[in-house]
Amino acid sequence: MKTFRKLVYPYCVWLGIFVVVPMLMIMIYAFSQAGNDVTTLSFTFNNFAKFFDPVFINVFWKSIKIALITTILCILLGYPLAFIIANSNEKFRATLILLMTIPQWINMLIRTYSWIGILSEVGLLNNILSFLGLPTVSLLYTDFSVIIGMVYNFLPYMVLPIYTSLNKLDPNLINASYDLGANRVKTFQKVIFPLSIPGVMSGIIMVFLPAVSSFVIPKLLGGGQYMLIGSLIENQFITVGEWNFGSAISLIMAIIILISMYVLKKFDKDITEERGSKA
């Protein structure tokens, strides 16, 4: 069987060139001065120091804030949805899951773009409001429109893992809980919810990650001046041309995300292990 071990080599080379080297390149750029040749590389922390300028730190916090709000909204909206789907009758369930996944197959830019027509000054929402005799609101190019766009795009990433973990749940456990005298609220609190936490956890990872680094949604629904960390990076590379500073921001973001993922996964593991040892 050792003959097959060699099959790994080509991809090792590929990973080295196209995954590892690019990460190293980001690091090199992040720690070096602009306009430098590889031969005259000079080490500097300037790019990181620049990031701590209040302007950029604010962008950073704002991104975290928007991503957190998006994640929380996705849990609040997505959990009941997953719960309802998991509890609907079997024939209907497949259709509902299909309905949840169809929008995901549509290009993300197109889905986001379509909100402009609804939220704009003279859009559908304001037409409805004025039809009802209510004052119109300007929603496009605000935090609100960006959050709506994110929730809209990432909600299925929350619903599907929660649905999967609810679906895997052994109905006997729920029946046992009822038999032992727990009411529905108690059963949900003590049995269903704790067992669905792995689903919620992967939902959080799958929503928070793209939300914190997205630059398309803030660009389309936040307007040209709206800055989140993703759009800041894009700006540095495409518009400003400061690759070194852009690399430094990317490095900071990548490290924060990899660490938080590690922590979340560990936390998730601890919970399951704790349950395992109790049982």
Binding site: I17, V19, P22, S213, E234, I257, L258
Partner: peptide
């Protein structure tokens, strides 16, 4: 080792993978 490196493009935000590639191609 390989599965962990293999996870990187999936875990990294798209934009980080993207600029890494861009820097590589440029250099």
């Amino acid at each position: 080792i390989i599965t962990n490196i293999n996870d990187l493009p999936m875990m990294n935000p798209d934009i980080v993978t993207a600029i890494g590639m861009m820097l590589l191609f440029a250099s």
